[in-house]
Design a binder for these strands. Sequence first.
RNA 1: GUGGCUAUAGUGUAAUGGUAGCACAGAGCCCUGUGGAGGCUUUAGCUCGGGUUCAAAUCCCGAUAGCCACCCCA
Length: 460
Amino acid sequence: MPRSKKQVTTKKKYAEKAVKDGQATGGQPVKRSASSKTPQLLRGFKDVLPIDQKYWDLIESRAKNLAIGFGYGRIRLPILEETQLFSRSVGKDTDIVQKEMFSFVDAGGDNVSARPEATASIARAYNEHGMINWSQPVKLFYFGPMFRREKPQSGRQRQFYQLGFEALGSAEPVIDAQLIAIFNKFLTQLGLGELVTIQVNSIGCVTCRAEYKQELVNYFKPKRKLLCEDCKKRLIKNPLRILDCKEASCQSILGEAPQILDWLDDECKDHFMKVIEQLDQLEISYNLNPYLVRGLDYYTKTVFEIWPKEKLGSQTALGGGGRYDGLVELLGGRPTPSAGFSVGIERVINLLKEKNIEIEEKNVPQVFLAQIGSQAKTKAMKLLELLQDEGIVVAESFAKDSLKAQLELSNKLKAKYTLILGQKEVLDGTILIREMEGGVQEIIDYKKAVDDLKRKLSMT
RNA sequence: GUGGCUAUAGUGUAAUGGUAGCACAGAGCCCUGUGGAGGCUUUAGCUCGGGUUCAAAUCCCGAUAGCCACCCCA
């Protein structure tokens, strides 16, 4: 009997569906073409769903703690800036500025861009708020989305989050070392310490880098035929980039190439040596990488990146940074030696997931509040707020009426206790409290429920 | 930006020209006030648009998206 009944309903549903789809209307089939009408994510943009929040929460709270510990104050910077801020700082010939920015002319005719990174904004803010009059160095940290219109891959999105620490107003090598130490500590606290390597190099100041560049060109020019096509272009555009080319033919002639460290002037060399000494003192292991070059124009002297030991796709760096002694001045301020680093949050999360690093689930409710019957439901809604006011993390499912379904949910949410409030309890002025693990439950006075629960929870 | 690979319920996957199936998740029942096990029922899908064919999830073309390599970068 139930079977035939169900068949009827099923047939009915099909009929309804057919009508909806236009098949039974006798006319043209109505095409749903859902995807053309359903709004979709923009290319390279992603939603972060509740299931992943634990990673984000963890990263942000670790960053905040480190910031407090090392004296970095949070700064929240705007997403949009004048386009020229980036062309002047990041470099107008860099790929980031030339082809990767979300730039547009707004309704008022201003040229604006979604920020592709935050250091330029930091320097702008330093000047704009007269931070030169604050006690130096000014230490700032930020956390927020950046935008680059690249072809997406895993670990490379058009909107991605960066966390950054910046110290402005000190030329001391200890600043460079401390930034590396913070970066390292951040990853270590996330359980990634053993899985990454720190790459360090110095690219000198404007003067000695120019000399080195010339030297590099002089070296490669006679060997031009041995270089790959890209590197032939780099020879003119950005000879430093030849150093990290992946082509075997280019790699093979790198060995004899002049090394930047030999061309640093006395001051730059001295600075770098001190940074290295500091790192040794701090017992931070690092890899001196003479081929490490960073893509943004404003870097000087110390540069560093942190790489996973096992390469994840073609994206090597989890993050990187360095010194940018000329940036503040370049943007119209006083000479202000500075340094900083930024971390790609999605890349860090990818690594955490890849290595199955366990993250404590923080949003486990302590108590689940179940109800049976409409009177009980109303009363439970009030109780819910009482519990919340006492700071108890409580879950509920007022939309479900069956106790069974509510207990199932309580179990799934891993609540320690379930409060059960039914018609009987409402009349008696009581409430049931069930300890989920053992299934023991007791009847208690409704008025004492909150206190009783608090006692039970604080005892565990 | 260049080149390559891929696209099936919410998720993970089968079916290779001929009836779209399975697992998990969701809803419901077995059990009308008691979760974790089991059984049953059910919801939900061929990315989109063209073409070839009697017939396309399957073959071809295009679009889109994801991934991979390059470029570049976090």
